[in-house]
């Protein structure tokens, strides 16, 4: 299955959340790979703690591969053996493969979608689908040629299942923007329909993920004054109403990731060790990633709206 991760704005935590989802999915015993299609700023290497590709690869990365610059196969990084983090360097028993396909260092966004680029993209998805249970594709923020390319590629692979995750923060602007990215003019649905997807079927394959969510009853808020808490509560209620008006509400939401200080300071994978041994991460955050990693393949969570 192909999963496309997108967000309208930058800084939503799209990359850090999608990497944590594939990491959890691998721990659950599946073979997974992560494609860094954020060609403008390929940073997935840093999140997986693979120093050699922290800002993209200097070898044949995805960008070179798609543009046909002498690479029949893009560079692959086996995270279980190449990560600099000791806790990640041994594959836990029962875990599946965890492979990163980095972008190019200094690659830049796609200038257009040429037929040859599209053909290569289809070939790549088709080959990876043969090999991996889950292929997570991190598409850059907003409307881009990259998003158009993968929309077209999935039209040409009718028997390969795919789904979209739209990441947004729990604020007024982000909710409106996330809805706009999907339903707005030239959004995912418009573009998808233009390339040959059926609008309703495509809509059913899109779900929202809320990131950095601060619940009004969260433990972090204990020190707040009553007035502050009341204000937050009112805000949250208002946002819920706004979200459901924009159809970004509960039914189309796949999951939410609580605000975790560790992710505000450093984008990284949250391992069980971070929760249980060093206790730098919250158990709720790890549980939310774990839950999402199950839900993305759970058909019940993707039934028609």
């Amino acid at each position: 299955m192909l999963i496309f991760a997108i967000s309208d704005k930058g800084g939503t935590g799209r990359s850090v959340t999608s990497t944590n989802i594939v990491y959890r999915h691998a721990l659950q015993g599946n073979d997974v790979c992560y494609l860094d299609f954020d060609f403008g700023s390929p940073t997935a290497g840093a999140i997986f703690s693979v120093g050699s590709v922290a800002r993209g690869t200097t070898r044949k990365g995805l960008h070179d591969y798609l543009l046909g610059e002498g690479a029949p196969e893009p560079h692959r990084v086996d995270v279980w053996t190449e990560s600099d983090r000791e806790g990640l360097r041994t594959k836990p028993p029962g875990a599946g493969r965890l492979v990163l396909l980095p972008g190019n260092e200094g690659g830049g966004e796609l200038p257009a979608v040429e037929e040859e680029t599209l053909r290569r993209c289809v070939q790549l998805f088709s080959r990876l689908d043969e090999e991996f249970d889950l292929v997570m594709v991190d598409v850059s923020a907003g409307r881009s040629f990259t998003a158009e390319m993968v929309l077209q590629a999935t039209v040409r692979l009718p028997s390969v299942p795919f789904r979209w995750l739209v990441f947004h923060r729990w604020t007024r602007q982000h909710i409106i923007a996330a809805d706009g990215l999907v339903t707005g003019a030239d959004g995912l649905l418009d573009a998808g329909t233009r390339f040959g997807h059926k609008r309703d079927a495509l809509r059913d394959r899109i779900r929202f993920v809320r990131t950095a969510v601060l619940e009004p009853d969260a433990a972090e808020l204990v020190g707040l004054r009553d007035e502050q808490r009341a204000w937050l509560f009112a805000c949250d209620t208002e946002l819920r109403e706004l979200a459901s008006r924009h159809k970004v509400g509960r039914t189309s939401m796949l999951g939410k990731i609580p605000l975790d200080p560790i992710l505000q300071w450093r984008e990284q994978l949250i391992s069980d060790e971070d929760v249980l041994a060093s206790k730098i991460a919250n158990a709720e955050t790890a549980a939310a990633f774990d839950d999402l990693a199950k839900k993305i393949v759970d058909d019940a969570a993707w039934e028609g709206l």
Partner: peptide, 15 residues
């Protein structure tokens, strides 16, 4: 990629 195949292989495996 032949249209005669259903693409639902019983397990995932690398070439």
């Amino acid at each position: 990629s032949s249209p005669l195949l259903d693409r639902r292989a019983p397990f995932k495996i690398a070439r």
